[in-house]
Design a protein around this nucleic acid. Structure first.
Lengths: 242, 242
DNA sequence: CAGTGGTCTAGACCACACC
DNA sequence: GTGTGGTCTAGACCACTGT
């Protein structure tokens, strides 16, 4: 993966930017970079486009490519989830704390109409319903309810779902979850939220719900996550282009 | 803008997909499309990549390009904010309801250290502090506090900030806000939230806070938005690639 | 006008899926 | 092996910025 030319250039440039090799916040022009690294201009453009998508640089036609000053001030803003690697467990900030999973429920059910539609299921497809409490160092932070079609992983067991399902998929079946469609919102906490997440009556939960896809586009899981509000920080860098 | 070749192809394909012209959910291969529309394969790839980024299709090396079934079932999931056009006002769902603005406060202040850093300000730069209540049809849904460096728009007035600042920029100064870095979270409502947004004591607010950038990368505004929780639905389609 | 990023092309070769 | 998407190149021409 990392031996691709544009990946190499990308990582080289990123390192240089972080190291402060461009004190005037301006990168060399594309033709110079092409010459310097002995790659085509198209490849340079590809690397620079990714940097721009990630909000690390801004490209300005006619004048050049500039480093986003906010990206350097790294201790503050700018650690987005939008372009990183996940594992759901990992995409929340766990500053050195051990993630844990407590299995609350595990069974097979017949999906409701809406769920059937979202997971693109046929009439007689069944799904696992997996309800888990997730923790950091014994501190619960999220109640997660997931629905997975049995036909995709018919061998699921209590043991497997007590760990990371995404890791299981990756290691045992060589399938990766790389896309997701999520809705982020907020709600007052229910009695169950308050009990399981140690919330006061007036404290809310953050809700993230949606579908995770396998590489080939198969909808793999519908998941509804209710988070202790202090743990929900969803960061996005958005480019609006139309 | 729309006369670009890849844009044309993009919009043609999108229309065909929505119209159901590909009942087996598979697009023609890239070389055929290239031939059919008399454009280079690179241009085809460009259009298809955008469709993939938007979650409309999945590309599978070795087998083809497939339409995301969830994208067709349009009445349900899948109206994301992540790849659309904004105006902040518009990016929240306003089903035919008129957006309104009530100006709560408008003054010039000396920015705190953190704000100075986020907006990339020098020592003696001042900022406008603009606090506004936003409504749909007289129903308040958001308290918004924005900070804008006076050096960027020294002519700002109560009249201007009582309307859409982004529209003002676009129409009067030909500058566009196309990038933003936002953090989405949830909080218990304060007394002020409850009063202004008509919330009960146990009902929370959604919080969206972050920086909006001009086209050339200038940080233009730091904004903190506290939303009635029923109005916060932030949709994202995320691709994780490393 | 010179410098810089944006678009587009034509074609070579690679990597993976499926038969 | 054939088909399909992925990477990479070399080069032409356009559009915008700034002097």
């Amino acid at each position: 993966m990392a031996d691709l030319v544009y990946r190499q250039l990308l990582s080289t440039l990123k390192k240089q930017i972080v190291a402060g090799d461009y004190p005037n916040l301006k990168l060399p022009d594309e033709r110079s970079l092409s010459e310097q690294y002995q790659v085509s201009r198209s490849t340079v453009k590809r690397a620079l486009s990714i940097l721009a998508d990630q909000g690390i640089v801004f490209k300005k036609r006619g004048s050049g490519t500039f480093i986003n000053p906010l990206y350097l001030k790294n201790d503050s803003v700018f650690h987005y989830n939008n372009g990183s690697n996940l594992g759901v467990t990992d995409s929340f900030q766990m500053n050195g704390r051990k993630p844990g999973i407590s299995l609350l429920n595990f069974e097979v059910i017949r999906p409701q109409a809406e769920l059937k539609r979202d997971l693109f299921l046929k009439n007689d497809d069944f799904v696992y319903e997996i309800k888990r409490l997730r923790l950091f160092d014994d501190e619960p932070f999220m109640i997660e309810t997931g629905y997975i079609p049995i036909k995709i992983v018919p061998e699921l067991s209590r043991k497997i779902v007590s760990g990371s399902i995404f890791n299981y998929l990756q290691n045992e079946k060589n399938q990766t979850v790389t896309k997701s469609y999520l809705t982020v919102s907020a709600e007052p906490s229910t009695a169950e939220d308050q009990e399981k997440l140690h919330l006061k009556a007036n404290e809310p939960v953050g809700v993230m719900a949606g579908v995770f896809f396998l590489d080939d586009g198969t909808p793999f899981e519908y998941s509804r996550m209710r988070l202790h509000y202090k743990y929900m920080k969803y960061n996005t860098f958005v480019t609006l282009d139309d």
